[in-house]
Computed example of a mutant assay.
Amino acid sequence: MLRLLPFVVATCTPAGLLLAACVFGGVWAGSAILAITVFVFALDKIGGATPISDASGHLLSVVLGILHFVLLGAAAWAMNGPLPLLDKVLLVIGFGLYFGQISNSNAHELIHRADR
């Protein structure tokens, strides 16, 4: 389970920050972008290749698949809310990065599962 921790942190931290940005705006949107770019890059460099078991990796993939739809709804809600334009622009960038880097890769992995 400890070997899975870097993957959970790298994928769920930006998701939590994006959710906070949808609700509160402000610095949270910029923090989400920094988490997706700088923080995850740094984790990748210091973490090295950490193999994980199929069972724990599959569970994380399923959780990320469900989280994708939660984030998609939160993004739609935030875009229609009273957030300032700058916050909305940062959210579009943050969600684009998250959906492109994490959700897309995760969907690819889920498609190739034998038990899909």
Rank of each mutant, 00 (worst) to 15 (best):
P14A: 14
A15F: 12
A15S: 13
A15Y: 07
A15R: 04
A15V: 09
A15I: 02
A15N: 10
G16I: 05
G16L: 11
G16K: 03
G16N: 06
L17Y: 10
L18C: 06
L18P: 00
L19T: 03
L19E: 05
A20M: 07
A20I: 04
A20W: 04
A20Y: 06
A21I: 02
A21R: 00
A21W: 00
A21V: 03
A21C: 05
C22W: 00
C22R: 01
C22S: 06
C22N: 01
V23I: 14
F24M: 10
G25F: 00
G25Q: 03
V27M: 07
V27E: 07
V27R: 08
W28N: 08
A29P: 02
A29K: 03
A29M: 02
A29S: 04
G30Y: 04
G30A: 13
G30F: 11
G30E: 05
G30C: 05
S31W: 01
S31E: 07
S31Y: 05
A32M: 02
A32H: 02
A32T: 06
A32I: 01
A32G: 07
A32Q: 02
A32K: 01
I33D: 01
I33R: 10
I33M: 05
L34K: 08
L34I: 15
L34F: 14
L34G: 08
L34T: 15
I36M: 13
I36Q: 14
T37E: 09
T37S: 14
T37Q: 10
T37V: 15
V38F: 14
V38K: 09
V38D: 04
V38L: 15
V38A: 15
F39V: 11
F39L: 14
F39D: 05
F39I: 12
F39C: 09
V40D: 04
V40E: 03
V40W: 03
F41S: 12
F41W: 08
F41M: 11
A42D: 04
A42I: 15
A42L: 15
L43C: 12
L43H: 10
L43N: 10
L43I: 12
L43F: 13
L43K: 09
L43P: 01
L43M: 15
D44A: 15
D44Y: 13
D44I: 12
D44T: 15
K45S: 11
K45A: 14
K45Y: 10
K45Q: 12
I46H: 01
I46W: 08
I46E: 00
I46P: 00
G47Y: 12
G47C: 13
G47K: 11
G47T: 11
G48Y: 10
G48P: 02
G48L: 09
A49I: 14
A49Y: 11
A49F: 12
A49R: 14
T50F: 07
T50K: 15
T50G: 02
T50A: 11
T50L: 15
T50C: 12
